[in-house]
Design a protein around this nucleic acid. Structure first.
Lengths: 171, 171
DNA sequence: TAAATAGAATAATGTACTTTTATCAATATG
DNA sequence: CATATTGATAAAAGTACATTATTCTATTTA
């Protein structure tokens, strides 16, 4: 004999799936399936960003004081097509807070203007320096007194790879 | 009259799709469809990482000198469940290369040992300090001579949110 | 009368199938 | 004979459908 039947509230409720929201079938490369599922499940690598204020003696991170959610790649990489990373070697930019083994976020889509910190190819090496570009004078300025500026003669061409936007330093 | 016909090489060739490889249909939350498609299309936010050496006068980034491909989130976030970000306020850790408005990557899954830089909740504020923890003495040490260490009395409990693993500094 | 159970309803999920797209070679054309 | 056209073919892409999972309540049972 029939039980249940048509009535309000019957059936599986909405939002009881893995993602607590409607889903859609999309096609992705086989090699990335696992990574994408992880990405989807973790909410796109969005992690909480906290500001300065919390309740006195607040023992652990709570939603109450979240400034927002943030994805690092999204935050640091404006245009994936023009962005790349460079591992720092040397101490020439120490006073700019750039240490050996730091990772620099570099955008070659930005204009290399006077005063910007840039990545340049000089003598088979990548160097980080502050660009000096005034009165037809082009110089790569270190920010460490132990190093000398590199003058670029007018006939030489300076190969600038891009402008440094961020420094990532491990502790 | 029939043209074409059954023959070797007929049909759409493999690898002529968007991803140049076979795809699979998977289900993802509707709200993330766009982000995931972007993620899939950009190869998972993997961007080139360059080391120090390139050919002299190499005018632009080339594959020849890539050290590898890197995803920032993957590289900086070991465990999404225990990681969060904190925006820096104040100058108390300047000598450790931590400036105002920098973003710190913090892992609360790591043990807060002596000598580590930690995030602690003190008097309703989040502070970054180096943890001093020896001989039953607990102190939060600034790295800037203009600031004083914060002593934690034995009866007080210090609320440590996590250990700072990376500093992200915008230029 | 209270607890257990089976049936129905409906969302969620995964995959099979249909539609679209790209390429090749046989044929037609100039 | 060189070039353009056409239809067959097969991969790629998107979607519909069948399956699975979950919840609710009417009925049964103790």
């Amino acid at each position: 004999m029939p039980r249940g039947g048509k009535r309000a509230g019957a059936g599986r409720p909405k939002g009881t799936g893995k993602y607590a929201e409607p889903t859609k079938a999309i096609r992705v490369p086989v090699s990335m399936v696992d990574k994408i599922l992880e990405y989807a499940h973790s909410g796109g690598f969005q992690l909480p960003l906290y500001g300065g204020k919390v309740a006195a003696g607040c023992p652990a991170p709570t939603d109450d004081y979240i400034e927002g959610m943030m994805d690092l790649s999204e935050h640091l990489v404006h245009d994936p097509a023009t962005t790349f990373f460079v591992r720092v070697t040397g101490y020439s930019m120490l006073n700019a807070g750039i240490h050996p083994d730091d990772i620099l976020v570099v955008d070659r889509g930005l204009e290399a203007r006077h005063g910007k910190i840039v990545i340049a190819a000089v003598d088979g090496e990548l160097t980080v320096k502050r660009l000096y570009k005034k009165d037809n004078l082009v110089r790569l300025m270190p920010e460490n007194d132990d190093f000398e500026p590199i003058d670029i003669a007018p006939q030489e061409t300076l190969h600038i790879w891009g402008v440094v936007t961020n420094v990532i330093h491990a502790l």
